[in-house]
Design a protein around this nucleic acid. Sequence first.
DNA 1: AAGAGCATTGTTAACGTGTGCAGCACTATG
DNA 2: CATAGTGCTGCACACGTTAACAATGCTCTT
Lengths: 337, 337
Amino acid sequence: MSSVTIKDIAKLAGVSHTTVSRALNDSPLINPETKDRIKSIAGSLNYTPNYSARSLVLDRSYNLGLFFSTLHTGTSSGFLYEAIKGVNDVIKDQFNLIVRGIDDYKSYHNVNRKSFDGLIVMSQSASDQSFIEYAADKEIPIVVLNRPIDKVKVMNLVPDDQRGAYRVAEHLIEKGHRRIAIIEGKQGFKSTQARRDGYREALEKHGVPLRNEWIVPGNYDLESGYAGMNRLLDLKERPTAVFCSNDDMALGAIKAVTERGLRVPDDLSVVGFDDHLFSAFMSPALTTVRRPIEEISRAGAEKLLSFIEKKQVEKSTVYFHTELVIRDSVKTIAGGN
Amino acid sequence: MSSVTIKDIAKLAGVSHTTVSRALNDSPLINPETKDRIKSIAGSLNYTPNYSARSLVLDRSYNLGLFFSTLHTGTSSGFLYEAIKGVNDVIKDQFNLIVRGIDDYKSYHNVNRKSFDGLIVMSQSASDQSFIEYAADKEIPIVVLNRPIDKVKVMNLVPDDQRGAYRVAEHLIEKGHRRIAIIEGKQGFKSTQARRDGYREALEKHGVPLRNEWIVPGNYDLESGYAGMNRLLDLKERPTAVFCSNDDMALGAIKAVTERGLRVPDDLSVVGFDDHLFSAFMSPALTTVRRPIEEISRAGAEKLLSFIEKKQVEKSTVYFHTELVIRDSVKTIAGGN
DNA sequence: AAGAGCATTGTTAACGTGTGCAGCACTATG
DNA sequence: CATAGTGCTGCACACGTTAACAATGCTCTT
């Protein structure tokens, strides 16, 4: 069952392989009748083009890379899922979607124009700056999603994390809270900083005191949310509300609260960030910030395809709206402080 | 910055391109000194091999396909995440990992030996039987994970869902429950049937009555768990325990319970299946069955690599142990019934 | 000293496509 | 009738790599 080539078809049709190639590619040069004849022969032989050969001569790989900063700690499953779904919906059959974590590369050696027609980087950390620069330098069509980057100019689609964090912190203040803690995201991630900044901005704007002991580190996973909340609960002066830098940590944090016999939101209010699938179904349903990852991924894929087609890239930064989602994990308190 | 080829290197080194090819591939035929010289020239020119050309002549694509039944409803993000992580950990730099949903294919046309060195199918539904048969027929090295398949013989690694379901149902019975409902998984999914069978088996074995109205449909997503539980709560005779066919639905189900002012497990016991990342962190922590998807994925990838290397496939079915994970969502009750 | 054998390198073809250019037959134009 | 034009097809080469085979120079053996 060795595979059939255009030369086999040519022989059967009594034409040259050139004619077959043209016919299958719908060249207007070919007589409609021979074209049909060739196509039907190809169909009956179950011909499939050899993509390696085509790639070689056309200088296209038919590969699109979807790169994450890491596929280990820091990338939540929901994030991965939404990104793949969004991109996949757009590219369909046209390209192979190759998924990889940047931190798995020892060297970027085989990231080049020959191997990838384009790249989508779901960037979470400054640590992949070098990768982005490398790819941009090689002039591979590229879009960078999720993390705003500086220095190198590329198409950059990002959620407005800072604004979202600002809104959710402000929401806590409006509900009467004045003792508001934060469990931060993974160090080095840009999103960690943006959410921290939004949080600070809201507190400062409303003259709410900011205490160092209410700022605890985390790394975006469940366990770190659990640990972070325990640290806060051990303080003499507890906060009345805690802003967790993502929903996973919020879930861990709530676990820590209930383990001590306390209740959310009655004894302590908790908010998250991301609006994961499960967040609406937790008890209590989590107040959080929706970050449109799937939408950004879709938009990024569309941009990339147009770059590849037009053989020309645009470079700009586009912010996507983040949205406060109010549910049941925040208590309204009377006095504040 | 047009890319450098072995011929360019050959010119600079004053040798033929064949020698360069051999040197870079560490052929023992080449004089160690010239080899070093060529390698250093290649390094300084920043040479990267053209994989399309290499693929063409070697008849290898360097592509591995990771195929899911669907990337839409029915595939939970945790499942996707664990599968990608497991496979990716094994293949590292050797191959491109191409992720796709089978239901996105209009035709399997460009699934062939030329385009894929091997396939990993995370099969969830009988609907991809035709895909598996197609691939097996084309003699592409293949492993099928997660779903036990019949008819076509391939390497098949699956969790023992039925045994797991049996154990968790038995656990409920041991805790004194005799009114046990089930919210089923997506119709047509093999796992749905296996879990149902395990559940029935346990009930029959222990002489626990099985009532039709306590068997409600679902489709593995949060919403369907929520809806299913509401159906059960509307019954005149409510169950005392509910086996949800996965953790996502358990989460939705618990939501429905708490919404009515009832509590888990005090008023109603709930168990799930999968042991998702978040299950230990729910309140109450969910009693469930651990299904080692990442482990299976890793094992599958290793098998596949060995098939490709040895150019020979084994065919058998291997069951992976599923494990009852006891947490806090089941109440011990005195009498039963 | 001649031939065998080895180490190293080069020549040439092949993988399956796509494409510039030439060529053919036929029609239209004057 | 000669010429230009048009519609269609084939020839020959290119893409970058690997590999079978040939060729070269050298060493060793007898």
